Simulated assay, not measured.
Amino acid sequence: MPTPDSAALLAARFGPGSSACLSVPGRVNLIGEHIDYHLLPVLPIAIDRRIHLAFRRREDRHIRAASDVFGDREFEWTTRLQPSAAGDWENYIKAAAQAVQHKWELSYGIDVAVVSDLPPAAGLSSSSALLTGITLALLRANGLDANFEELMEILPEGEYFVGTRGGGMDHAAVLACREGAALLIHFAPLSATPVPIPADLSFLVAHSLTTAEKSGEVRAEYNARRTAGSSGLRQLGFDSFGEALAQHSVGNLKSMAASRLRDPEQRCFRHVITEASRVTRAVEALKEGDGQSLGCILNASHVSLRDDLRISNNDLDELVLAAGASGALGARLTGAGFGGCAVILCRTADLEKVRAGVIERYYSKRSGFVPEVHLLTATPCAGALYL
């Protein structure tokens, strides 16, 4: 696909002039779903589909933003920004502005143009990529160059402005991933360690053709999973999932949950502890080049997301089955759930066979399929700080 031209959009909307550019990739989480907000390790990759931004500094504290899809927005950058209508992309611009002014005193707003080849509402972190991109643009326009640790202090909480009570995985991944590697992210304390992907293993990202907008009812469902897991943790007498897993085996914790918790707390707690174990085993499988074991881990994750966390849907379940029937080593939904994408693991030598099988078994039954948009080869690429 051609690279979107954010600089041309900036000139068309706000007039000619010099500008700076940056891009932020999307991400695919290989394993570790819905556990980053419990401060447990996760294992994403960044992908070569991006949010592209062109920006220039203003001499006042206004922010003007243009999107080739969502239209233009403008507001004064005050100390107490109020959210726009639910689902409006302006909320992510305001979230970035709010986040940076909590840590730095900035004097200048920006004009910014945003274009993207990253599908929205697909579980590929388009919203976090946008938030991160606007944040970087605001800082750079004001002469600041924040490091990874400083950005991770503000970005996860910045997204709370939109109403999503997520964790820090998406922001860490789109900032700090490295080419050719997954990123093992720990949150307590924060660290990010590249884990090379063996050359004989490849990933596809397959869109279910159902969307996962983080607004309204879906946002409430997303937040409810976090609340249920935390409630179960407290009922069992632990201060953190890290503490629970350090003191007890996964088997013991599952037994404790079965005897002392009710649903949905029991189911959500069980998903968190088993998914944390799967992250550890997935890292070991990658280091050993064991694609068969990694595939089994991905399959087990999908079952847990479907049955315990209950964030899958019929389309995602069918897509995962189609991948397996096409020769994939494993597959699971990735992202927030309730629609969006599945990540599919296969041998590199089998990539085109699996792709063709998924098209035949899944997409041939549905309208609206665009191969270059909905079925992507997920080549691990660098995050925004390493481009």
Rank of each mutant, 00 (worst) to 15 (best):
S116Y: 11
D5R: 08
E157R: 12
G26L: 05
K94Q: 14
S202C: 12
T379R: 08
V28R: 05
D263G: 11
P25W: 08
L319R: 09
H374C: 06
A95P: 04
I45D: 13
A182E: 00
A212P: 02
A11P: 01
D72K: 06
Y362W: 13
G26F: 03
D5L: 04
H271K: 06
M256E: 13
E372K: 04
H171Q: 15
F241C: 10
I359L: 01
D88N: 14
W104K: 01
G229T: 10
F14L: 11
F338W: 15
R140P: 02
S208W: 12
A12C: 06
A8K: 09
C177M: 05
A282G: 10
M256Y: 12
I51W: 07
S18V: 13
H52P: 10
L118P: 07
L155E: 12
L209C: 12
L261H: 04
M256R: 12
L309D: 10
L81T: 14
T135W: 11
A342S: 09
N252Y: 14
A176L: 00
R80V: 11
R262N: 05
G26H: 06
G339F: 10
K103R: 14
S127D: 05
E372P: 01
M256L: 15
S19W: 15
L253Q: 07
Y37G: 04
V343T: 06
G339V: 05
G143V: 13
L351Y: 01
A20F: 06
V28F: 09
L316C: 00
Y222H: 07
G330V: 00
K214I: 15
L184R: 14
N313E: 14
L321Y: 00
L30S: 03
D48Y: 00
H207C: 03
G32F: 08
H271N: 07
R49M: 07
G383F: 00
I51R: 14
L22Y: 07
R27V: 09
F187G: 04
E105M: 08
L298Y: 03
F241W: 13
D60R: 11
Y386R: 10
S215C: 10
A244G: 08
R332E: 05
G163W: 03
D307Y: 00
G251W: 02
R226N: 05
H248F: 08
A328Q: 05
R73F: 04
G330L: 03
L118H: 06
P198R: 03
A129W: 14
S202Y: 03
L236M: 02
L329E: 06
D307S: 03
I35W: 03
A86T: 15
A325E: 15
Q101S: 03
L329C: 04
L319K: 07
S126E: 10
E372H: 11
E265S: 11
I51F: 03
I154G: 02
R49P: 09
E33Q: 13
T135R: 12
A257L: 05
D36K: 00
L151N: 11
G368L: 13
I273F: 02
I31M: 10
R178H: 12
